[in-house]
Amino acid sequence: MISDITLGQFFPGFSPIHKLDPRTKIILTTLFIIEVFLADTPLLLALMLLTTVIMIGVSRISFAVVLRGIKPIFFIIIFTAFFNIFMTKGQGEPLVHFKIITIYKEGIIRAVFMGLRVIILILGTSILLTYTTSPISLTDGLEILFKPLKKIGIPVHLFSMMMTIALRFIPTLIEETEKIMNAQKSRGADFSQGGLIKRVKALIPILVPLLVSSFKRAEELATAMEARCYRGDKNRTKLVKLTYKPLDFLWFAMAVLLFGGIIALRILPGHISPDSLIYDILFYKV
């Protein structure tokens, strides 16, 4: 059944991450992305990896499920690693030198480093945002966060209304697609055989009625919304109000602490003798 697909990969739950205000999560995710890009030493990267692992633990979503999320970007990771291995020029003797292929130690280190960075980035953002935030509260959070943009003429409320309606109608349209497919199948249509072109052609009789009915739905919905006094965000109030709770401030504090730590560890190298062993361990530059 196609209606079984989960929307935005959201896993409902009651963990401390699930309970966070969507605005908190959006801000923390942005911060997390910056932190990952600031992390340019093995130590900092290890710190980010640890943060991510702790967050996965806190979210109570199983590691197996989370790791499955990397699958779609596996190719990108391999691709970047591949380029880093062969394109990085290092000092000293190359490890492998065979015709046009030269591999340096630095290349391998860089490949591992970049791969890890991408993995941490994906894991961290999905745990903080997509896996633990329902699409609708994400929309609410975005609407409030972007409200200042209204002043420069961006219709923030309309975008959020469109998102909400899209989310509301995805299951309805999936249901309808299934109905149309069954109707076509019962009259001998075949969606599972033949080459790519044949299969794409078989989709046309599904998409056309679906599109027509979507327009009809849109018109009826617009009428229904008008009948219920909808006039944009003019004079409009909300039933649910987002409020920051102590938990949100705790997470903000931790995020700021982590951010400060990373900045400190980036500045510190100038104050430790570059010849010492500690320097090499801590601040190996890739």
Binding site: R168, T172, E220, A224, M225, R228, Y230, T237, K241
Partner: peptide, 30 residues
Amino acid sequence: MVFQNPDNQLVATIVEEDVAFGPENLGLPR
């Protein structure tokens, strides 16, 4: 007004938020 197709007049993804849609448009206090 209540229309014919129940699917095409519900706006929100949660029942109570949909019921709140009208009063929200009227600008009533929470």
